[in-house]
Amino acid sequence: MPRADRLFRLLDALRRLPAPATAAQLAAETEVSERTLYRDIEALRAGGALIDGAAGYGYTLTEDPALPPQNLSRLELEALVLGLAELRHLGDTDLARAGEMALAKITATLPESRAHQAAHAVLASYRMHKRPAPPVDLSLIRQAAWDERMMRLHYCDRDGVESDRVIWPLGLVYLDREQMLLAWCSLRADYRMFVIARMRAIEVLSDSFRPRRVPMLRDYTAAIHKRAHPKADAQGDLLG
């Protein structure tokens, strides 16, 4: 791992782990020896990061000059904490971890009183029934959508009929009970919402549909709006 990437990873660990974080914890997070970890701590300090602590006691990041100061109200903090906590219930471990890291980074830039409020928010989010893990790797789908790469999908529909399709992934949709993928289906030559739980296998292809994802999302949203408000659109057509 390049040294710069390792130092960023160490900063993330210092923000995220309960303070003070031990050298053993930080070394495990950054996948280095404790001797290398001590050198990395000194490198961050030399770069301006205020890190309290020492070997045998643990380390606490008291200020991170790499990030701009945040001025959030208590209600904004509550909304942020509650919204990111919701990610834990989606069954997507990568997304949940990203939310935790984002909150840690934001909290690291807050004044002490606001950081205390973020750590002890009065709002919480729980679910009695845990959503099962998705049968496919959602990170591959997200990356394919961002890269505008076609995918091969082996899918089982609601009637139990299995099929192989080539799709253009446009975006993931998280509903209260289901996770869905909005995509253009080459088999149906139309937009389709695929239930993640019914996916049997996925493969990212080298074929690209760039730069059509954003225009297609815009067209799909417009079509949904038109179906939901046919009278308003008809009146608009007459007036236009």
Rank of each mutant, 00 (worst) to 15 (best):
L172H: 05
G47A: 15
H154Y: 09
K130T: 15
P2K: 14
A222Q: 14
A108N: 00
A119I: 15
S206Q: 13
M128F: 15
L187E: 12
D233S: 09
I106V: 14
C156Y: 01
T221C: 11
A118P: 00
G240I: 01
A4Y: 00
I196G: 08
Y59Q: 01
G58I: 00
A104Y: 03
E76S: 10
D94P: 09
E100C: 07
L238Y: 07
P230W: 09
P230G: 01
R142Y: 05
V166D: 12
R35F: 01
T22G: 06
M150I: 07
L84F: 09
D94F: 01
L175R: 12
E31P: 03
A54E: 12
R142P: 03
L82F: 12
E63R: 13
R200K: 15
L80S: 05
M199H: 02
L138D: 09
A66P: 06
E112Q: 12
T107H: 01
W146Q: 13
I224H: 04
S113F: 03
A201D: 10
H116N: 11
G48E: 04
T22Q: 08
R200S: 04
V32D: 04
P65Q: 07
V81A: 10
L77R: 08
S139W: 07
W146M: 07
Y174W: 06
Y57R: 13
R35I: 08
G160K: 00
D147G: 04
P18H: 10
L14F: 06
E42I: 13
D159A: 11
V136D: 03
T221P: 00
L140Y: 06
G56C: 04
L110W: 02
V136W: 02
R210D: 04
V122N: 11
D237L: 12
R213P: 12
R227N: 11
T30Y: 02
Y174M: 09
E42K: 08
A54K: 13
P68V: 07
D92N: 05
A133C: 02
V195L: 11
L37E: 07
D207E: 09
M199E: 06
E78C: 12
A13W: 04
R88P: 10
A96K: 07
L7P: 01
L11I: 15
P132G: 11
L82V: 15
L10H: 08
V136C: 06
L175V: 04
L61S: 05
D94G: 00
R213M: 03
A98Q: 11
A189T: 10
L44T: 00
R165T: 14
R198P: 08
D190T: 10
D207V: 06
S139M: 14
Y220G: 10
A24N: 05
A145D: 01
D237K: 15
N71T: 13
G47K: 15
D5V: 02
R6S: 11
E162W: 02
L84D: 08
T36A: 09
A119H: 11
A201R: 12
E100R: 09
M150Q: 14
A24R: 07
L205G: 08
P2M: 02
